[in-house]
Design a protein around this nucleic acid. Structure first.
Lengths: 140, 140
DNA sequence: CTGCATGTTTATATAATATATAGACACGCC
DNA sequence: GGCGTGTCTATATATTATATAAACATGCAG
């Protein structure tokens, strides 16, 4: 049904939480999970994806936790969602090899999906964590 | 994972098939299902959605089948996919009542999803069945 | 008015994916 | 050495998507 999954939505909220709270050093998973109301175990699996793509860094031991690797304005939402969603191409065939689909060359609908992917990409690439935080500040 | 579902992709191919084949009168479900390689029973459930939204009309009895209700240029893809997908809002909260989500008013991410929905809508509203058919003709 | 070829409806089965949980482990500071 | 953190692998549960089945309704041909 073409929905951003819970993972993607959570990931975005986690990254926003970090952007707003990691200036004093690493933030513990438990702390974020309580603030964002995400179960810690589930959040673990999301953190591992964000780590794999180097969107965050981690520190073990006491006073350990997670921290952003860049400044908030250097995180386009596309990158975060693409990571947590495992891709944002709206149909599977876009991620396939050219010759994997027998009708690829004559398929009337492929260009539609390519174009759709592009507008989604353009839109989400134009927004960063900082954009959102600034908008939030305006609302208060 | 934010994917157009099989229903949506099938629906689009079915509508394209009708646009290209219904000028001699109604086209039988079986005929389309064979041409498009969609199992007849599954296709039935898609047709019932297209019917409910009046995107196609049907005729029973011998020589019965399905037919478009408008000209191909009067079918924006948004309408077809919105019908078959059961909506194209990228997150559930956009379809909810304002007060159904407790943090709706202060949620930093809602505007992102609203904007995303809008670019998807704009893009798919700008393409019609006719657009695709003409593009296909160019490829031959 | 009978029979067949079509569409229609409701129910169910199966498969895939998303979401969530559990337990054992690794690391690092104190 | 022990506690507080993150990491990894496996599994359970829930939800949704996909597909199938069977009984029914309609309309035309003869």
């Amino acid at each position: 049904m073409m929905r951003i999954s819970t993972k993607g939505r959570y990931a975005l909220r986690i990254m926003l939480d970090l952007a707003q709270n990691d200036d004093q050093g690493p933030v513990a998973l438990r702390e974020i999970s309580e603030r964002q109301n995400i179960t810690p175990k589930y959040m673990e699996s999301i953190m591992s994806m964000l780590l794999r793509d180097n969107l965050v860094q981690s520190l073990r031991g006491k006073a350990g936790g997670y921290q952003l690797t860049r400044k908030p304005e250097e995180y386009p939402l596309y990158e975060i969602l693409n990571c947590a969603e495992g891709g944002l191409a709206p149909v599977h065939c876009l991620s396939m090899e050219e010759n994997e689909c027998p009708i690829r060359k004559t398929c009337l609908t492929i260009p539609v999906w390519e174009g759709l992917h592009q507008v989604i990409k353009d839109y989400l690439s134009g927004i960063t964590l900082k954009t959102l935080i600034e908008q939030g500040a305006n609302c208060v």
